[in-house]
């Protein structure tokens, strides 16, 4: 699958890339919500891993914009936030999955595999 990774932390982007690149194609890395929207338009990835807390534009707003542009977009939140209200906001914005940090490699692979199987 073509994957776009969005996280303001280079450390976390590296970690996700390491987990995913063996079986998937990383088409880009965004450091904030604005870059994520731009890269989504350019690359049209199959799946976006999206952090929530980011500078300039947060991940929920970026997800909202991406799913407005492309109702078939697949966005999985990948965040440390474990608040019910922000999970609900993510669902409203169009997110299809939610992984909480710190995560295990298996939980990321399980999520992407279950989406690939749909």
């Amino acid at each position: 699958m073509d994957v776009l990774i969005t996280d303001d932390s280079g450390f976390m982007r590296d970690l996700l890339r390491e987990i995913l690149e063996e079986d998937h194609n990383i088409v880009g890395e965004a450091e904030n919500g604005v870059e994520a929207v731009e890269l989504y338009q350019e690359q049209q990835p199959d799946i976006v891993f999206m952090d929530i807390v980011m500078p300039i534009k947060d991940g929920i707003e970026a997800t909202d914009e991406i799913t407005d542009m492309d109702p078939n977009a697949t966005v999985v939140m990948c965040t440390s936030v474990e608040q019910a209200e922000q999970m609900k906001d993510s669902i409203k914005a169009g997110a299809e999955g939610y992984i909480t940090k710190p995560f295990q490699k298996e939980s990321v692979l399980e999520e992407i595999n279950s989406i690939a199987a749909k």
């Binding site: 303001d8 807390v53 980011m54 500078p55 947060d58 965040t79 440390s80 936030v81 474990e82 608040q83 019910a84 209200e85 922000q86 906001d89 940090k101």
Partner: peptide, 19 residues
């Protein structure tokens, strides 16, 4: 997140934090 999320959930609201 580990620290403030519990407050937000118990208070039925959101607490957002800056990077």
């Amino acid at each position: 997140s580990g620290f403030v999320d519990g407050w937000a959930n118990v208070l039925n609201g959101e607490i957002k934090h800056s990077p």
